[in-house]
Amino acid sequence: MGIENDYRILGISPGADQAEIKRAYWKKAKAIHPDVNPSDNADVAFVEINNAYERLVNEEKQLIPEYSFLMDLLRPETHQEKALRYAKMWQEEFRRNNESFKRSWAYLPIKIVAYFLWILGIALALTFVFGPPAVSLFHDVVTGLYMAPIMFIGVAFLFGSYQFKKQMNRYL
Rank of each mutant, 00 (worst) to 15 (best):
W118T: 02
M89F: 14
I119D: 05
V141H: 01
A125H: 00
S100P: 00
Q80N: 12
L73P: 04
P76L: 10
S136P: 02
P76D: 04
R103W: 02
P132R: 01
L108H: 08
I119E: 06
R96E: 15
L84I: 12
E77F: 07
P109V: 05
M71N: 11
Q80C: 04
I122R: 03
F138S: 06
T127W: 11
Q80A: 15
K111T: 09
W105K: 13
S100V: 04
N97S: 07
K88W: 02
G131T: 09
A134W: 06
P76S: 11
L108V: 14
F138C: 02
I122N: 03
F116D: 00
Y107L: 04
L120D: 06
R96M: 14
G144A: 03
N97A: 10
L126V: 12
Y107K: 07
G131M: 10
S104P: 00
G144Q: 01
P109S: 07
L108S: 08
E77W: 08
L117F: 12
L117N: 05
S100Q: 12
G131Y: 07
E81P: 02
L117T: 01
K88C: 06
Y115V: 12
A114F: 03
H139F: 13
S136L: 04
F128E: 03
L137A: 06
Y115L: 13
T143W: 03
R96Y: 09
G131K: 05
V135P: 00
A134R: 10
A106Y: 10
K102N: 09
F128C: 08
Y146P: 00
F128A: 05
R95Y: 05
R95C: 01
A134N: 04
L145F: 13
G144D: 00
A125L: 02
L108G: 02
K88R: 15
E77V: 15
I110N: 06
L108D: 10
R75L: 04
Y115F: 12
G131S: 09
G131A: 14
A123E: 04
L84C: 04
H79G: 05
M89G: 03
M89Q: 14
V141W: 01
L145G: 02
P133C: 03
A134Q: 07
S100Y: 03
F138Y: 07
F130M: 08
Q91I: 06
Y86S: 05
P132Y: 01
L126N: 06
N98T: 13
F101T: 07
R95H: 14
Y86R: 10
R75W: 02
P132W: 01
Y115W: 15
I110C: 09
E77Q: 15
Q91N: 13
S104V: 04
V113M: 09
Q80E: 15
M89L: 15
R75N: 07
T78F: 05
T143E: 01
T78P: 01
N98P: 01
M89N: 05
K88F: 08
D140A: 06
Y107A: 10
Y107F: 15
N98E: 09
L84S: 12
Y115N: 11
R95Q: 14
G131I: 12
V135W: 01
A106G: 08
G144H: 00
L117P: 00
I122K: 03
E81Y: 05
K111F: 07
K88P: 00
